[in-house]
Amino acid sequence: MDKRLKQLKQPRVLIIIPAYNEGEHLLQVVESIRQCCPQWDYLVVNDGSVDDTENLCARHGICAVHLPINLGIGGAVQTGYRYAWKNHYDIAVQMDGDGQHDANFLKELLQPLVSQEADIVIGSRFISKEGFQSSLLRRAGIRFLSLLIRLCTGIRIYDVTSGFRAVNRKFIRIYADYYPTDYPEPEAIISAVMHQGRIKEIPVIMRQRESGTSSIRGFRSAYYMVKVSLSILICRITFGIRR
Protein backbone atom coordinates (compact mmCIF):
# COMPACT_ATOMS: atom_id res chain seq x y z
CA MET A 1 0.00 0.00 0.00
CA ASP A 2 2.76 2.43 0.95
CA LYS A 3 4.67 1.65 -2.24
CA ARG A 4 1.56 2.32 -4.23
CA LEU A 5 1.12 5.65 -2.47
CA LYS A 6 4.70 6.56 -3.19
CA GLN A 7 4.26 5.73 -6.85
CA LEU A 8 1.26 7.94 -7.13
CA LYS A 9 2.12 11.55 -7.64
CA GLN A 10 -1.50 12.45 -7.11
CA PRO A 11 -3.16 10.16 -4.59
CA ARG A 12 -6.90 9.62 -4.85
CA VAL A 13 -8.45 11.65 -2.09
CA LEU A 14 -11.98 11.49 -0.71
CA ILE A 15 -13.27 14.22 1.58
CA ILE A 16 -15.96 12.82 3.88
CA ILE A 17 -18.52 15.35 5.10
CA PRO A 18 -20.98 13.97 7.66
CA ALA A 19 -24.10 16.11 7.74
CA TYR A 20 -27.19 16.14 9.91
CA ASN A 21 -29.67 18.94 9.29
CA GLU A 22 -26.92 21.32 8.17
CA GLY A 23 -29.10 22.97 5.50
CA GLU A 24 -27.67 25.69 3.29
CA HIS A 25 -24.37 25.78 5.20
CA LEU A 26 -23.55 22.41 3.71
CA LEU A 27 -23.67 24.04 0.31
CA GLN A 28 -21.07 26.60 1.40
CA VAL A 29 -18.79 23.84 2.68
CA VAL A 30 -19.09 21.93 -0.61
CA GLU A 31 -18.52 25.10 -2.64
CA SER A 32 -15.36 25.90 -0.67
CA ILE A 33 -14.05 22.37 -1.39
CA ARG A 34 -14.93 22.66 -5.07
CA GLN A 35 -12.99 25.92 -5.25
CA CYS A 36 -9.97 24.91 -3.14
CA CYS A 37 -9.42 21.36 -4.33
CA PRO A 38 -11.34 20.55 -7.50
CA GLN A 39 -9.00 17.62 -8.14
CA TRP A 40 -10.28 15.70 -5.09
CA ASP A 41 -13.56 13.88 -4.63
CA TYR A 42 -15.91 14.61 -1.79
CA LEU A 43 -18.82 12.67 -0.31
CA VAL A 44 -21.55 14.15 1.83
CA VAL A 45 -22.96 11.56 4.22
CA ASN A 46 -26.49 12.71 4.92
CA ASP A 47 -27.11 11.10 8.30
CA GLY A 48 -30.88 10.74 8.06
CA SER A 49 -31.47 14.52 8.08
CA VAL A 50 -35.07 15.60 8.55
CA ASP A 51 -34.57 18.95 6.80
CA ASP A 52 -34.19 19.57 3.07
CA THR A 53 -30.62 18.17 2.82
CA GLU A 54 -31.53 15.35 0.39
CA ASN A 55 -33.30 17.68 -2.06
CA LEU A 56 -30.58 20.29 -1.65
CA CYS A 57 -27.95 17.72 -2.67
CA ALA A 58 -30.03 16.69 -5.71
CA ARG A 59 -30.63 20.30 -6.78
CA HIS A 60 -26.98 21.28 -6.60
CA GLY A 61 -25.46 18.04 -7.92
CA ILE A 62 -23.74 17.29 -4.62
CA CYS A 63 -22.22 13.83 -4.41
CA ALA A 64 -23.99 12.28 -1.43
CA VAL A 65 -25.11 9.09 0.23
CA HIS A 66 -28.34 9.29 2.18
CA LEU A 67 -28.56 7.10 5.26
CA PRO A 68 -32.18 5.99 5.72
CA ILE A 69 -31.90 6.31 9.51
CA ASN A 70 -29.79 8.51 11.78
CA LEU A 71 -26.68 6.57 12.81
CA GLY A 72 -24.93 9.38 14.65
CA ILE A 73 -21.60 10.96 13.78
CA GLY A 74 -19.60 7.72 14.16
CA GLY A 75 -21.88 5.72 11.86
CA ALA A 76 -21.92 8.53 9.30
CA VAL A 77 -18.15 8.88 9.22
CA GLN A 78 -17.74 5.11 9.01
CA THR A 79 -20.03 5.12 5.95
CA GLY A 80 -17.55 7.49 4.32
CA TYR A 81 -14.61 5.24 5.18
CA ARG A 82 -16.50 2.22 3.89
CA TYR A 83 -17.14 4.07 0.62
CA ALA A 84 -13.50 5.16 0.41
CA TRP A 85 -12.27 1.60 0.97
CA LYS A 86 -14.62 0.10 -1.64
CA ASN A 87 -13.73 2.76 -4.20
CA HIS A 88 -9.97 2.41 -3.69
CA TYR A 89 -9.15 5.85 -2.37
CA ASP A 90 -5.62 6.37 -1.05
CA ILE A 91 -6.47 9.09 1.46
CA ALA A 92 -9.69 9.97 3.27
CA VAL A 93 -10.31 13.29 4.99
CA GLN A 94 -13.01 13.97 7.57
CA MET A 95 -14.49 17.44 7.56
CA ASP A 96 -17.54 18.73 9.42
CA GLY A 97 -20.56 19.87 7.44
CA ASP A 98 -21.30 22.80 9.76
CA GLY A 99 -18.62 25.10 8.35
CA GLN A 100 -16.23 24.85 11.33
CA HIS A 101 -13.37 23.55 9.20
CA ASP A 102 -11.61 25.62 6.58
CA ALA A 103 -11.04 23.88 3.23
CA ASN A 104 -7.94 26.04 2.69
CA PHE A 105 -6.10 23.82 5.19
CA LEU A 106 -6.83 20.60 3.30
CA LYS A 107 -3.55 20.59 1.39
CA GLU A 108 -1.54 21.12 4.59
CA LEU A 109 -3.51 18.36 6.27
CA LEU A 110 -2.66 15.92 3.50
CA GLN A 111 1.03 16.79 3.18
CA PRO A 112 2.33 14.48 5.97
CA LEU A 113 0.35 11.58 4.47
CA VAL A 114 1.67 12.12 0.95
CA SER A 115 5.24 12.36 2.25
CA GLN A 116 4.53 9.28 4.40
CA GLU A 117 5.54 11.00 7.62
CA ALA A 118 2.28 9.96 9.26
CA ASP A 119 -0.70 7.63 8.97
CA ILE A 120 -3.15 10.03 10.55
CA VAL A 121 -3.08 13.80 10.54
CA ILE A 122 -5.23 15.84 12.90
CA GLY A 123 -6.02 19.49 12.35
CA SER A 124 -5.53 21.13 15.76
CA ARG A 125 -6.81 24.52 16.86
CA PHE A 126 -4.67 24.48 20.02
CA ILE A 127 -1.19 24.58 18.46
CA SER A 128 -1.13 28.08 17.03
CA LYS A 129 -4.08 29.04 19.27
CA GLU A 130 -5.69 31.08 16.54
CA GLY A 131 -9.34 31.23 15.50
CA PHE A 132 -12.24 29.72 17.42
CA GLN A 133 -10.95 28.15 20.65
CA SER A 134 -14.16 26.81 22.23
CA SER A 135 -15.42 27.69 25.74
CA LEU A 136 -13.26 27.52 28.86
CA LEU A 137 -15.15 24.52 30.22
CA ARG A 138 -14.83 22.59 26.98
CA ARG A 139 -11.13 23.38 26.74
CA ALA A 140 -10.72 21.98 30.27
CA GLY A 141 -12.56 18.81 29.20
CA ILE A 142 -10.41 18.46 26.09
CA ARG A 143 -7.25 18.92 28.20
CA PHE A 144 -8.38 16.21 30.57
CA LEU A 145 -9.04 13.78 27.69
CA SER A 146 -5.71 14.71 26.13
CA LEU A 147 -3.99 13.93 29.44
CA LEU A 148 -5.84 10.64 29.72
CA ILE A 149 -4.77 9.61 26.21
CA ARG A 150 -1.21 10.63 27.06
CA LEU A 151 -1.28 8.50 30.23
CA CYS A 152 -2.70 5.52 28.32
CA THR A 153 -0.50 5.69 25.25
CA GLY A 154 2.38 8.07 25.96
CA ILE A 155 1.39 10.16 22.94
CA ARG A 156 0.41 13.78 23.28
CA ILE A 157 -2.46 15.01 21.14
CA TYR A 158 -3.67 18.52 21.90
CA ASP A 159 -6.99 18.61 20.04
CA VAL A 160 -8.43 15.18 20.75
CA THR A 161 -11.97 16.16 19.76
CA SER A 162 -11.06 17.64 16.39
CA GLY A 163 -13.12 16.12 13.59
CA PHE A 164 -10.78 17.58 10.95
CA ARG A 165 -8.46 14.70 10.18
CA ALA A 166 -6.98 12.73 7.32
CA VAL A 167 -5.93 9.09 7.16
CA ASN A 168 -4.09 6.88 4.70
CA ARG A 169 -5.35 3.65 3.13
CA LYS A 170 -4.23 1.49 6.06
CA PHE A 171 -6.52 3.43 8.38
CA ILE A 172 -9.30 3.71 5.79
CA ARG A 173 -9.52 -0.07 6.05
CA ILE A 174 -9.31 -0.09 9.86
CA TYR A 175 -11.95 2.61 10.27
CA ALA A 176 -14.21 1.07 7.58
CA ASP A 177 -14.17 -2.09 9.66
CA TYR A 178 -14.69 -0.44 13.04
CA TYR A 179 -15.31 3.14 14.02
CA PRO A 180 -16.54 4.15 17.48
CA THR A 181 -20.18 5.22 17.61
CA ASP A 182 -21.15 8.19 19.76
CA TYR A 183 -18.54 10.93 20.41
CA PRO A 184 -15.98 8.91 18.46
CA GLU A 185 -13.02 11.26 17.96
CA PRO A 186 -10.93 10.58 21.12
CA GLU A 187 -11.61 6.84 20.92
CA ALA A 188 -10.62 6.80 17.24
CA ILE A 189 -7.25 8.31 18.27
CA ILE A 190 -6.51 5.65 20.86
CA SER A 191 -7.63 2.94 18.42
CA ALA A 192 -5.16 4.38 15.89
CA VAL A 193 -2.33 4.35 18.43
CA MET A 194 -3.16 0.75 19.30
CA HIS A 195 -2.87 -0.13 15.59
CA GLN A 196 0.62 1.38 15.61
CA GLY A 197 -0.52 4.42 13.68
CA ARG A 198 1.79 7.42 13.40
CA ILE A 199 -0.23 10.47 14.37
CA LYS A 200 0.69 14.01 13.54
CA GLU A 201 -1.04 17.22 14.54
CA ILE A 202 -0.86 20.30 12.39
CA PRO A 203 -2.08 23.77 13.32
CA VAL A 204 -5.34 24.87 11.69
CA ILE A 205 -7.72 27.74 12.26
CA MET A 206 -11.29 26.73 12.97
CA ARG A 207 -14.41 28.83 12.76
CA GLN A 208 -17.38 28.84 15.07
CA ARG A 209 -20.07 26.49 13.72
CA GLU A 210 -22.24 28.23 11.14
CA SER A 211 -25.27 26.03 11.61
CA GLY A 212 -26.95 23.85 14.22
CA THR A 213 -25.92 23.50 17.84
CA SER A 214 -23.44 21.17 19.50
CA SER A 215 -24.95 17.91 20.74
CA ILE A 216 -22.79 18.16 23.87
CA ARG A 217 -24.68 20.48 26.19
CA GLY A 218 -25.91 20.44 29.80
CA PHE A 219 -26.17 16.95 31.26
CA ARG A 220 -24.79 15.51 28.04
CA SER A 221 -21.44 17.12 28.83
CA ALA A 222 -21.17 14.98 31.97
CA TYR A 223 -22.27 11.90 30.04
CA TYR A 224 -19.76 12.75 27.32
CA MET A 225 -16.84 13.00 29.76
CA VAL A 226 -17.73 9.77 31.58
CA LYS A 227 -18.43 7.83 28.37
CA VAL A 228 -15.33 9.01 26.52
CA SER A 229 -13.01 8.52 29.53
CA LEU A 230 -14.37 5.02 30.04
CA SER A 231 -14.08 4.13 26.37
CA ILE A 232 -10.47 5.33 26.30
CA LEU A 233 -9.60 3.22 29.34
CA ILE A 234 -11.47 0.16 28.08
CA CYS A 235 -9.96 0.48 24.60
CA ARG A 236 -6.49 0.60 26.20
CA ILE A 237 -7.13 -2.35 28.51
CA THR A 238 -8.87 -4.63 26.03
CA PHE A 239 -6.87 -3.98 22.92
CA GLY A 240 -4.26 -6.58 23.71
CA ILE A 241 -6.98 -9.19 24.10
CA ARG A 242 -8.73 -8.21 20.85
CA ARG A 243 -5.50 -8.16 18.89
Binding site: A64, H66, P68, L71, G75, T79, R82
Partner: peptide, 13 residues
Protein backbone atom coordinates in the same frame (compact mmCIF):
# COMPACT_ATOMS: atom_id res chain seq x y z
CA UNK B 1 -28.06 -2.82 11.56
CA UNK B 2 -25.43 -0.08 11.24
CA UNK B 3 -23.54 -2.04 8.57
CA UNK B 4 -26.77 -2.78 6.68
CA UNK B 5 -27.78 0.89 6.75
CA UNK B 6 -24.38 1.97 5.43
CA UNK B 7 -24.39 -0.64 2.66
CA UNK B 8 -27.95 0.29 1.72
CA UNK B 9 -27.02 3.98 1.43
CA UNK B 10 -23.99 3.17 -0.77
CA UNK B 11 -26.12 0.92 -3.00
CA UNK B 12 -28.79 3.61 -3.28
CA UNK B 13 -26.12 6.07 -4.43
Amino acid sequence: LRTLTQELACLEK
